[in-house]
Amino acid sequence: MNPQSAAFLAGPLAVGLAAIGPGIGICMMTAAYFNSIARQPEVQGRLTAYYFITLGVVELLGLFGFVSFYMLFSKTY
């Protein structure tokens, strides 16, 4: 296997594997967010700000995978 075809395999694999963790994380976070709003609807305004902050923090891990994909592909082309 030459390095170029290895990079072609590794790029999509990096995106897919990096998406697993943030997927689980965002699922758990959103479930907790909806549960707490269903239990106490009046906290929605305060929770939304913290929800989006945490969304940004969790989502970053998935984007690391994308950036490694992008770097691999810009090297191979």
């Binding site: 940004g56 923090v57 989502e59 970053l60 984007l63 690391f64 994308f66 950036v67 992008y70």
Partner: peptide, 13 residues
Amino acid sequence: FSLMLRLYANILV
């Protein structure tokens, strides 16, 4: 670095 990468990667995606 995380601030920078988050914004850049989201817009690029």
